[in-house]
Amino acid sequence: MAEIRNTENNWGWLAIFFHWLTAATVFSMFIFGLWMTDLTYYHPWYKTAPELHKSIGLLLLLLTLLRLAWRFIDPAPAPLANHSAFEIKVAHRVHTLLYFLLLGMMLSGYLISTADGRAITVFKIFEIPAIIYGIDHQEDVAGVIHLTLGVLLVIIALLHAGAAIKHHLVDKDRTLKRMFGR
């Protein structure tokens, strides 16, 4: 079992937890989002699915902020010795891009639902108020951005996963295993 904190060679379990929970949420929310925007008016999920989507999205925002804070507190392990300088550089840029896409997704989603000043209720427990609203056609512009970033995020995340699998199968190194705490 890994430690909570990262070490020189291994990911700590908290970083691992953040990573896989985010990955699972992103892919399910992508499918869920496409599915729910296509529901017919009388579908039992027509009203509840978007409420759930927004609640999960805002919790993922909270998780991502905690994750970023943790990343500053707890530096990532060193790259594996067999990784080239080029691989390290590209990987680093992709990770940064993924964080920006994640934050952009949650921000644009938030701006759709709060475009008229209404708050978002998270799991019927608490409300996140609208901060930026009333911009001309805000919901439409934010909607286009949300879908575009969503597609981009999933594509880049798949490339990121593909690269990890390549390290595992072709290079036969610990890149992927490390993310499972091994």
Binding site: I112, S113, D116, E139
Partner: peptide, 15 residues
């Protein structure tokens, strides 16, 4: 595009 039913998400759907 100026449709307004006092609910942004609904207006987005209507557009």
């Amino acid at each position: 595009t100026s449709i307004d039913s006092n609910h942004a998400e609904r207006d987005k759907h209507l557009r």
